[in-house]
Write a protein that binds this DNA or RNA. Structure first.
Length: 156
DNA sequence: GCCAACGTTGGC
DNA sequence: GCCAACGTTGGC
């Protein structure tokens, strides 16, 4: 099983939105490296940290679980939508999405400054200078560390 | 709102 | 294929 960190802007889609809806397609990804993570590298059952970016505060606020196979990102076919992709066809989609379900909401936000201050998270991809990927792999140890910092040793 | 970092676009 | 211009991300 792999582990991931998914960034989202809470003004657009928050951990509370995911908790309310139960599941969602993680879509509107318009970066090819992230597309490959979503489409090819993720597997059902993989656990994900949910990170709120462009927020107050920024940090990890909970978890989700990959709950199905990759699907064509439906937003690429919506003419007029900001995520519309004119190069895409139903036969040959350009962008892909992944269904995820709500996992847990942390008791508190594990803030960016805490992540940076934790020696065990020195290798965390999302902390590296210049990183802009909205989906990054994390190790099982990093996942467990952050989950414990959030006050949830186990999901749920 | 600022700006560093990086990806994408498009002229050549 | 190069690279300048432009757009986006995301912390601050």
């Amino acid at each position: 099983m792999r582990h991931w960190l998914l960034k989202t802007e809470p003004d657009v889609y928050s951990i509370d939105d995911l908790r309310r809806e139960g599941r969602t397609d993680w879509d509107r990804i318009r970066n090819h490296q992230v597309k490959l993570f979503l489409r090819d590298a993720m597997a059902t059952g993989d656990r994900c940290l949910i990170y709120h970016s462009n927020a107050e505060p920024t940090g990890v606020v909970g978890t989700a679980v990959v709950c199905g196979a990759a699907v064509p990102d439906a937003t690429q076919f919506r003419r007029g939508d900001e995520s519309f992709e004119p190069r895409a066809t139903r036969q040959v989609p350009v962008w892909w999405a992944r269904p995820v379900r709500f996992g847990s909401r942390f008791d508190r936000c594990v803030e960016l400054a805490e992540l940076r201050a934790e020696p065990r998270l020195r290798g965390l991809a999302t902390l590296k200078r210049g990183n802009r990927l909205s989906v990054t792999p994390v190790t099982a140890a990093e996942f467990a560390c952050i989950e414990a910092m959030g006050g949830r040793v186990r999901g749920g």
